[in-house]
Amino acid sequence: MGLEAFCGKYAEELQKHYSDVNEQMVLATAEGYLRHLMEAEVEDAAEILNSYAYHRITVDKSGSPRKIKGYFSSALAGVKAPEINAEADAKSFKPFIFMYRSKPELAAPAGWDWSKIEDGEWLTEFPELEVSVFDGL
């Protein structure tokens, strides 16, 4: 299956929670990640992507552990105006690739996967979505 099928399915699921997400945004972000992985000539792309996801989900910008659920809000609730676009997100991935190579502590802990996200609600099942060829149409 092509990248479009996966992006179509993920965009469909994301739209249930974030109205401003669309298939083109997801596709542009995925293509940006893949482009940076190819430019860096990585051999462990799955490991790098998993570690990047781990850090984006579990660590905030200051380096402190991220709490998804607070007393009155959830980090999964989204914001009124989008904080990031596909191009900016893909650009933020590039430095992570190079930092990952020089800082072993950036690797996701052994055995970590999305199902271990505390208070992750629907996000924990996101990587396990069933994708078919028709999702990209």
Score class of each variant (00 low, 15 high):
50 N>M: 09
31 E>P: 00
95 P>W: 07
43 E>V: 11
49 L>W: 01
34 L>W: 01
88 A>P: 09
120 G>K: 00
46 A>Q: 15
49 L>Y: 02
44 D>K: 05
92 S>N: 15
63 G>Y: 01
58 T>E: 08
78 G>N: 03
61 K>W: 14
116 K>P: 08
30 A>I: 07
84 I>H: 11
133 V>P: 01
36 H>A: 08
84 I>T: 14
57 I>V: 01
93 F>D: 13
92 S>M: 15
109 P>D: 03
132 S>I: 07
37 L>P: 03
87 E>W: 04
89 D>R: 10
96 F>S: 09
120 G>I: 07
112 W>D: 10
65 P>G: 00
58 T>N: 12
61 K>M: 06
109 P>A: 08
103 K>E: 11
93 F>C: 06
86 A>F: 08
122 W>G: 02
70 G>I: 13
135 D>M: 06
136 G>T: 05
30 A>Q: 13
114 W>K: 11
79 V>G: 03
68 I>L: 14
87 E>G: 12
72 F>D: 15
95 P>L: 07
36 H>Q: 03
106 L>T: 06
64 S>K: 15
55 H>F: 00
98 F>V: 05
103 K>D: 11
70 G>F: 13
80 K>M: 10
134 F>S: 06
73 S>T: 13
90 A>R: 08
83 E>L: 11
127 P>S: 07
61 K>V: 13
72 F>L: 04
38 M>L: 08
60 D>Y: 13
118 E>F: 08
64 S>H: 01
56 R>D: 09
68 I>Y: 05
108 A>P: 12
66 R>F: 14
37 L>Y: 12
111 G>A: 00
103 K>Y: 14
45 A>H: 14
67 K>V: 13
48 I>Y: 02
85 N>R: 06
119 D>I: 11
107 A>S: 08
71 Y>I: 09
67 K>N: 14
128 E>I: 00
29 T>Q: 04
71 Y>A: 07
71 Y>G: 10
128 E>K: 12
119 D>R: 08
104 P>Q: 01
57 I>C: 07
134 F>H: 05
133 V>S: 04
123 L>T: 07
47 E>A: 07
129 L>W: 06
74 S>G: 04
74 S>Y: 09
35 R>W: 03
77 A>Q: 06
75 A>F: 10
91 K>G: 05
91 K>Q: 15
72 F>S: 07
123 L>K: 04
30 A>G: 14
55 H>G: 06
114 W>Q: 08
115 S>E: 07
88 A>F: 04
63 G>D: 09
119 D>A: 05
31 E>L: 15
118 E>D: 10
96 F>G: 02
48 I>R: 00
102 S>G: 01
37 L>H: 14
86 A>C: 03
101 R>C: 12
110 A>K: 11
77 A>E: 02
36 H>T: 02
82 P>A: 10
112 W>E: 05
87 E>V: 04
99 M>Y: 10
80 K>T: 11
97 I>L: 09
30 A>N: 00
63 G>C: 01
110 A>C: 06
89 D>K: 02
42 V>C: 12
92 S>P: 06
54 Y>V: 02
69 K>F: 01
70 G>L: 14
132 S>Y: 03
59 V>L: 04
51 S>A: 10
101 R>V: 01
100 Y>V: 01
57 I>L: 11
98 F>G: 07
106 L>E: 13
128 E>S: 11
127 P>K: 00
73 S>R: 09
75 A>P: 03
135 D>P: 02
42 V>R: 15
50 N>V: 05
46 A>P: 12
58 T>H: 09
93 F>I: 02
